[in-house]
Structure formats: structure tokens, C-alpha cells
Design a protein around this nucleic acid. Structure first.
Lengths: 211, 211
DNA sequence: AGCACTTCTTGACAGTCGTCAAGAGTTTCT
DNA sequence: AGAAACTCTTGACGACTGTCAAGAAGTGCT
């Protein structure tokens, strides 16, 4: 009897927890959309609520405060993009093909997800000023570094030569490349998509010793 | 007589313009300090005034609005840093020496001017969201690209081999390197200063074909 | 149907923001 | 010295912010 009650309560509370988590995710999606549109400095809770189907008060029912909401958003963002290139790593049969696929994937996400990427750079920068985001930002940045390293090291394997740079350098270099392309793309220079593709391929070749 | 009056007025107004410009620069310096400390999102005009010796109302006497103030700040920032590496370019006698000086200069400015650099990245990102800063940000970014290219192309000359990358790639790569180092440095990892120095030297070698 | 609980809306709060006008204080010229 | 022009302070304005409490609306259970 007590057990049944316990089970029921578990089932109920689990369902509630699920619904709770679901709504959190839904609100975080609205928040991410707003942030990607306006940037951190211009995003308010009321604006986020207007991009959802709820009123502004509900945000404090699901999140303690603004910091928790944005932290949650950053974590959700991470889940989306940290495995972006893993598919092409396993499916590539040669170094050249991997280079091409990687360049193509970089170009594609620049074209399709530009607002999200500018948000990421914005939030990473907030981490340089505000202590509260720092841990999550660093965590994501390390995940991205590992993601890039999976590509580079596999490229090195396929080409039979070791990488000539460390994991940190490789990430910094491709990140810098992407950021420049993003800057150009968001100011209307659509050719930067193609430039990013070829620059990525070229640089990949130079970061692995060929002979 | 009319001429004398004209000359006098010119002299007067020139002096006034000078004083006016001087105070603008002074206030912009306070603004830059505040921005570097707090970041764009958390900097208010009252906060800027508190970091100066004036009250908040004076800012609207010297600047039309907040956008004009920050734009002016960005331009002032540019003048400071756009020739940062030019001295070492002319004074280097060999490629190796230039590589070392460049790495050392990067490391030094990371150590000494970290808050200013994080402000630059912050403002560059604002340009991705807010139309009003975009032109100045792009202008500065191009100046920085040329500054880096002066280093890289001179390095190539000294080493007798052509660069293997374009000006845009070279800037993107070193900028990415610096930004990663800044992220690490501002989170307390002081060893990133030395890492940046050696990474810069290493990468410089790889961006110029040696044989 | 009625009850308990969750979910959401509304409206208010204290505070901050950019902006500006009125006027005091200061400098400059005659 | 007095007038004119420049410089700066003060205090207010409307708008916006994050937060929260009161209670309405909705949901699921017995």
C-alpha cells in the first residue's frame, strides 16, 4: 500500500518533472531565438516571453532568475552543435574527402546558422566579463576544441602524417577563420561562404605535414 | 577690420575646438576604461561619468548620444593599437628574430592590455547585432588585418619564401590564437602568455613555405 | 462535482536607463 | 566691470528592467 503510493507518486512526479523539463526547454528555445536575434545586451525577459506563447511572469516559474535561464540556454545550445562534424568524420574514406566535407560543413553552418553563431561568440565574450557564465562557456569551448580535434586527428590518420599543431592551436585557427567569415557574411558579403569553404580546406592541409 | 575679426574668430574657434576635442578625448578615455571593466552590456553613462571627474549630464554636452560616444571610443581605441607591431617589423634583421619579436609582442599585450582586448572583441560582436557600430568595427578590423599582414609579408621576405596564405587567413589565424589565449588568461591561467608566445612563433613558421 | 495541485497571467515594486532642460558657475572679451 | 559665450551640475521625464506576489485558469484525482 505504501509501496503503491510510492510508485504512484514517483510516476506522477516523474511525469511532472518531464512536463516541467519540457516547458523549460521550450522557453529556453524562445530565449535562444531572441538572444540570437538581439544579442545579450538587448535581450530582456519580456522580449523573450513575447517570442513565446506565454507571458513574462512564467519565466520565473521555470527559472530562478535571468542568469539561470541564460545558463540553461547556453547548455542547450551546446548539445546542438558539439557533434556537428562527427558524422563526416566517420563517413570519410580519404583525407581529401574529409577535407572537402569539413569545409562544406563549415560553409553550410555559416550560411544556415549565422545568428546562432554570433550569439555563441557574444556569450563567450560575456564570460570574459561576468563570472557567472564563465564555467559553462569554458566547458563548451573545450567541447568544441575536442570536436575540431576529432576532425583534424582523423584527417592526419587518413593522410598518413601526424598533425603539426596541438589541439588548442587547431581549434584557435579554425575558430578564427570561422569568426572572420561570420563577420563578413553578416555584413552582406555572401561570397564569404565559399571563401570559408576553400580556406578551411587549404588550412587543413597545412596543419598536417604532407610529404 | 572684417579680416581681423575673421582671423580672431578663427583663432578663437580653433582654440575652442581644441579644448572641445581635448575634453571629448578625456571623456572617451573614461568611457573606454569603464567599457573595458564592465563590458558593453553593463556600461551606463552614469557609470562612465563616475569614472571621470564630471557629472553624467556633461556627456550630452560633448556627445550627441550614447552611440556617438561609443563610436568615438572605438575610433580612439583603434589609433592606439593599429601600429602596435610596426616597430618590430622595421627593426628585425632576420625572419627568426621577427618571429620571436612578434611572439613576444603578442604575449606582452596579452599580459598588459587584456581588458582592452576583451572590450575590442565585445564591441566587434556588437557590430554583428547593431547596425550603428558596424562600419567602424569593419574599418578597424581591416586595419588590424593590414597590420598583421605587414608582419607576415615582411617575415616572408626575410625568410626568402612567399607566404602560403592570404592576408585574410593570416589575420584570422593569429586573431583566433590571441582570442583563445585571452580566454584562458582572463580565467586565471597565466601560463597562456607563454603559450601564446610559442604558438605564435610556431604558426608564423608554418604560414610561410620554408625549404 | 468538488478538491488539491499545477500552471499561467496580471499588475505592481523599486531600480536603472538615456535624454534633456533650466540654470549655476566659469571663462573670455571689450 | 559688465556682457557674452562656454562649460558643467542638478534634477526631472518617461521608458524599460528583473523580480515577485496575488490570484485566475487549468488539470487530474477521488
Amino acid at each position: 500500500m505504501a509501496q503503491v503510493e510510492g510508485k504512484n507518486r514517483d510516476r506522477i512526479s516523474r511525469r511532472q518533472v518531464d512536463k516541467f523539463a519540457e516547458r523549460r526547454a521550450q522557453l529556453a528555445a524562445s530565449a535562444l531565438q531572441t538572444l540570437a536575434e538581439l544579442g545579450y545586451a538587448r535581450t530582456s525577459l519580456r522580449e523573450i516571453a513575447q517570442n513565446s506563447e506565454f507571458s513574462h511572469g512564467v519565466l520565473h516559474y521555470y527559472f530562478r532568475d535571468k542568469v539561470e535561464l541564460i545558463t540553461y540556454c547556453v547548455r542547450q545550445y551546446k548539445a546542438d552543435c558539439v557533434t556537428r562534424y562527427d558524422r563526416i568524420v566517420v563517413s570519410a574514406d580519404s583525407a581529401d574527402e574529409l577535407g572537402r566535407s569539413f569545409g562544406e560543413a563549415m560553409a553550410a553552418t555559416l550560411r544556415d546558422d549565422a545568428p546562432m553563431h554570433r550569439l555563441w561568440y557574444d556569450l563567450r565574450n560575456q564570460g570574459l566579463f561576468e563570472e557567472s557564465f564563465r564555467a559553462d562557456v569554458l566547458d563548451i569551448d573545450q567541447s568544441l576544441e575536442r570536436m575540431i580535434w576529432r576532425v583534424v586527428s582523423h584527417y592526419a590518420e587518413l593522410s598518413g602524417s601526424p598533425p603539426t599543431v596541438s589541439s588548442g592551436i587547431a581549434y584557435a585557427v579554425f575558430d578564427g577563420l570561422f569568426q572572420q567569415a561570420l563577420l563578413r557574411y553578416l555584413t552582406g558579403r555572401e561570397e564569404s561562404v565559399d571563401e570559408l569553404r576553400s580556406n578551411t580546406e587549404q588550412l587543413m592541409g597545412q596543419l598536417v605535414s604532407r610529404r
